[in-house]
């Protein structure tokens, strides 16, 4: 016996929902694939430096991070070191591998948006004076990389 018109309509609704769900999954994944291809466009710009004095001096660096892609990206510092002037001259100010974000371990940069993250790195007490001079003279160069994560994929981005 042929299915009743009501059953046929209900099955069509289920089929339409199926097409919509797979379409939504496809569009979302394809957008993320495109964002992944364009991950180099995520821009990190240091906007401010500050030396926090004390027994354990620390350098705080503000970064403006712009994500022009269509998918949210998560970032965390991976190897960022502050130098006095050209990094190739080797005048290291901050302690390597001491860098971390103020607050959370990771920061989220919204799709098509800009977010400000603060990077904190320890400074050895004997280099605190030189660091303060470098901050005042605007000579600090931060070099290294951030780990950029789009959904479940990660890559490093040089700064």
């Amino acid at each position: 016996m042929v299915r009743s018109p009501r059953t046929q309509r209900a099955l069509l609704v289920v089929f339409a929902a199926l097409v919509a769900a797979s379409g939504a999954a496809f569009v979302s994944t394809a957008t993320a694939q495109l964002a992944w291809q364009e991950r180099d466009a995520i821009d990190f710009r240091p906007t401010g430096f500050e030396l926090v004095d004390g027994d354990e001096p620390a350098l705080r660096v503000e970064f403006a991070v712009t994500n022009p892609t269509a998918v949210d990206a998560r970032i965390r510092p991976s190897a960022l070191v502050a130098y006095d002037g050209d990094p190739r001259a080797g005048a290291t100010l901050s302690v390597p591998r001491s860098e971390r974000l103020a607050g959370d371990r990771e920061a989220t940069v919204p799709a098509g948006g800009t977010t400000t993250v603060t990077l904190v790195a320890d400074v050895p007490p004997e280099r605190a004076d030189r660091t303060r001079e470098a901050v005042d003279a605007d000579r600090i160069v931060v070099s290294g990389s951030f780990v950029v994560t789009v959904r479940g994929r990660s890559d490093t981005a040089d700064v």
């Binding site: 797979s22 496809f26 994944t29 993320a32 479940g152």
Partner: peptide
């Protein structure tokens, strides 16, 4: 065929898929 191909694509690019579109759902 469209549903099958879209779901298979999402499975193939699983790392970039949204959280709700996991392997079981697809």
């Amino acid at each position: 065929g469209l549903v099958g191909a879209a779901a298979a694509y999402t499975l193939r690019r699983g790392a970039l898929a949204p959280a709700w579109a996991d392997d079981t759902a697809m």
